[in-house]
Design a protein around this nucleic acid. Structure first.
Length: 425
RNA sequence: GGAAGCGUGGCCGAGUGGUUGAAGGCGGCGGUCUUGAAAACCGCAGUGCCGCAAGGCACCAGGGGUUCGAAUCCUCUCGCUUCCGCCA
């Protein structure tokens, strides 16, 4: 959500920012409803002020047993009706205004390069060396099936297309990665681990920006207000919703592992093979609540923390800086981390690190106080994957494969795996 | 799922229709005193909205209603607690 006052005072700037993002949101309805609302508030509040003072007078007159009291009561009955009518009308205007406001995307940070879509993203840097193979490396779907650690057919049988089972060392590899990632982020980087609900109420989705606009990307319960989390960002960001945090506690850094559920209307023929894209996947997520003036600096830290994972696994990876056209609805600034996978020969997006500024904080109403007497201010929120599991699994399988189809377990995972090599059994 | 009870400010807790935005206590902040601290005493302290301002309005879980006027009465929803049932 944007600051209404800021929009009013910077109409052209906001219009340009929205256009840069490639969004076609119209400011018209917002401006109109905003002006209407303020006029109505003044009108109805004047009447309420009158009612309050006369009500006090009535109390006094009644105590004095004055006959004036009844006259006043009759008068006020009319004022009361007027107030009720205006309040009803105002409520309608406020609902529409809220809709219009929630439909406006976040503004890009000034440091973000202007560009129309992902083709204009900028490679910030590339780190590490690709693995050298003296044989033709296979894609993970071949490796996984031959080793018996990924089962696509049975996944489709019990759930549908885009579902799979992990089995034996495959399931264990994912569990090892999760445990190791959580340990890195909590022990090395000092994040506090959260185990959140996997289902949240609709209010949370509004808070982080999935609702109302992107309702068709989230799964929900048929009869109750329960929504399956599309990312741990949703429950973890919203855990402080409606709160005023003690500023001395900032930055607050959380890490959470959850399964993630997405409807993904997946285009036929794209990413159809393997475990790269599914309706359910696991992810370890980093979430930060920070002082507004530090948020871009905290974004750099967030990336550095997420990067520890591909680094420790010895992968070649790159950091992409998103241009305005690829920021999405909610982000002010965003970087993606991509790992090179030797089997399928592609860059796999394993993390998306975003600074949302106060956009989510306004929606979810998350504030802080700089000092005990200070006025509450909105925090800035950030999050990034650290990392998404299926694609990290792909990278481990493909980049650590051997000529005989076995997979060497990366050094850092061995304590968690209890084995050095994954072989067919 | 059934029954009963409860939901007031950071916390505890008064308050059943008329200066109650809300007593009192704890905690917090600022003073006095003290070499310093504690104790004691004094003072200050919620959030949001409208307004250039003066000021006004709203908020006692949330919504709706009754009334000239509601934290206080009615109603629905949600949450919590206890007992029973069920269950990992």
């Amino acid at each position: 959500m944007l600051d209404p006052k800021f929009i009013r005072e910077n109409i052209d700037l906001v219009k340009k920012a929205i256009a840069d993002k490639g969004e076609k949101a119209d400011l018209g309805p917002f401006l109109e409803l905003d002006a209407k609302r303020r006029a109505m508030v003044q009108e109805v509040e004047a009447l309420k002020a009158q009612r309050n003072s006369v009500s006090e007078e009535i109390a006094r007159l009644k105590k004095e047993k004055s006959p004036e009291a009844d006259k006043k009561i009759v008068e006020m009955r009319q004022v009361g009706d007027q107030i009720k009518a205006l309040d009803d009308e105002l409520r309608t205007v406020e609902e529409k205004l809220s809709e219009a406001t929630l439909a406006l995307p976040n503004l890009p940070d000034p440091s973000v390069p202007v560009g129309k879509d992902e083709s204009e993203n900028v490679v910030d840097r590339t780190v590490g060396q690709e693995k050298k193979f003296d044989f033709a490396p296979k894609p993970h779907w071949d490796l996984g099936e031959k080793l018996g650690i990924v089962d696509f057919e049975r996944g489709a049988k019990i759930s549908g297309s885009r579902f799979y089972l992990l089995k034996g060392a495959g399931a264990r590899l994912q569990r090892a990665l999760i445990a190791w990632m959580l340990d890195v982020h909590t022990r090395q980087s000092g994040y506090t681990e959260i185990y959140p609900p996997y289902m949240v109420n609709g209010k949370c989705l509004v808070g982080t920006g999935q609702l109302p606009k992107f309702a068709d990307t989230v799964y929900r319960d048929i009869e109750e207000d329960f929504w399956w989390v599309p990312t741990a960002e949703v429950p973890v960001t919203n855990m402080y919703g409606g709160e005023i945090l003690d500023g001395s506690l900032l930055p607050i850094n959380h890490v959470a592992y959850t399964a993630c559920f997405r409807r993904e209307k997946m285009s036929a023929g794209k990413d159809v093979r393997g475990i790269k894209r599914g309706h359910q996947f696991d992810k370890v997520e980093l979430v930060k609540f920070v002082l507004p003036e530090n948020s871009n600096q905290e974004l750099d830290k967030l990336i550095a923390d997420a990067e520890k994972i591909p680094q420790a696994l010895g992968f070649k990876y790159r950091i992409l800086k998103m241009c305005t056209g690829d920021l999405g609805f909610t982000a002010a600034k965003k970087y993606d981390i991509e790992i090179w996978a030797e089997g399928c020969k592609e860059w796999l997006e394993v993390s998306s690190c975003s600074n949302f500024g106060d956009f989510q904080a306004r929606r979810a109403n998350i504030k802080f106080r700089r000092d005990p007497k200070g006025k509450p201010e909105f925090v800035h929120t950030l999050n990034g994957s650290g990392l998404a599991l299926p694609r990290t699994m792909i990278a481990v399988m493909e980049n650590y494969q051997n000529a005989d189809g076995s997979i060497t377990v990366p050094e850092v995972l061995r304590p968690y795996m209890g084995m050095d090599v994954i072989r067919q059994n």
